[in-house]
Design a protein around this nucleic acid. Sequence first.
RNA 1: GGUCGGGUGGCCGAGAGGCGAGGCUCAGGACUGCAAAUCCUGCUACACGGGUUCAAAUCCCGUCCCGACCUCCA
Length: 467
Amino acid sequence: MSSLALYDTLSRTINPFVPIKNGSASIYLCGATVQAPPHIGHIRSGVNFDILRRWMTKSGYAVTFIRNVTDIDDKILHKAHEENLPWWALAMKYERAFSDAYAALNVLPPTYEPRATGHITQMIELMTTLIENGAAYAPGNGDVYLEVRKLNSYLTLSRQKLDDLLLADDAAETFKKDPRDFALWKGAKAGEPSWPTPWGDGRPGWHLECSAMAYAYLGESFDIHGGGLDLIFPHHENEIAQSEAAGYVFAKSWMHNAWVTTSGEKMSKSLGNSLQVMQLLKKVRGIELRWYLGSAHYRSMLEFSQAALDESATAFRRIESFLNRATEILGHQPNPQHSQAFTEAMNDDLAVPLALALVAESLRLGNSAVTSGDKKVIETSANEIRGALEILGCDPFDPAFGLSHGGDVTAALDGTIALALTQRAAARERKDFAASDAIRDGLSALGITIEDTPQGPRWSISRMEER
RNA sequence: GGUCGGGUGGCCGAGAGGCGAGGCUCAGGACUGCAAAUCCUGCUACACGGGUUCAAAUCCCGUCCCGACCUCCA
């Protein structure tokens, strides 16, 4: 039996996962800066790390999963001004939008979801330590900077050299000792929200909150720190810099998910609304969108297209259809199981695409078994497929996705359709195919699909009426 | 300038020296009153040019193209 191995951005190699605390896993994922509605790139990160979490949990680890919300930063203040809302109202509005999107895609809520503004105390403590250490300085204008030249090491994650970096636009910043120093804390400008500190009123810089909150909930050292590729520099480098300068070990390994791209390019907000999660959920169901986002390997770019999404949804419906049929035949829902091959695929740095090939194989065997009536094979296939879908967070029987139709309604509908099907059967019996097809077409127009099977006709609700 | 990813069949998407990943689409077949569903068969690809090797999508050298980050970013 293989054991879990994961790619580590720091070493750029796949290593066996060895938890700091036996039987446990601690994960910190950089969540959203809540300044706009989530697009599928944001949510892909959530889905990828949710798959990691589910697999680790299934593998027996007690997983503590922290995903933060950054609810104060430059962009939030800017957007709040644009939308003519208090900054906190804007942040909450989009925090809810993210929560809704996570829920729609069955991304499990984190163990805890700390907000930056709820951890000002911890940030001040961290800055105090850094200033006492001599690692940080407060030039007197309310800002606090980390002095990067004094660090023992810096930029190890992105493997860059300090002097090779292009200078930021604010390089002329007179209060910095070195233009590469970065702000832990920003002194308050007029009209901006602020919190009191020993160095003046101000607000958090972008990076400080993650170091403070990771320390607060996971301690000086934890197993995995995750986020999107674009966070490697500067965000994660600066988290490392702050945390190590404060004397923490910080993250043992780093995982980064790749982007969703369009036409080869990273998604940007200029693309408009079309790739927002809620927009896409008008076209496909949450479970289908999740299937699509989770289907590529987390370290590979996922090239978005509407056609690819549609195809992916079609493929998923085939799988779902088999599970429904298997449930009817078996008389009970499949019991999730994992084959050796599936386990090995997932243990190999979450080789989801390989796992999906196994699902496809099981599906083919299962469908053949439906034709031949081999219940044993139907059950095995269905169990393994459901087991895989469960880990991918795409189990169609998971109540998180909501039942497709309520029990009472289904019963009533079932009776109604049964009446129509009785009429159709009678028409077919007397070879009046015009009449029987008229019934089928009529039901079809109402969104009810009829299929004739050796066990008799079965009906289902066609899903994509909105398309 | 520095750092880092890519280019795989009609489309999506794995793999990383040798046994055709897989899916979707399309075409043909089986089944069917017809559909639908399902199964079977077919479509034998790895940017370009060299090289190494018994063997290269995979390694090496060179070239072209695309993208990302460099203190706003999933």
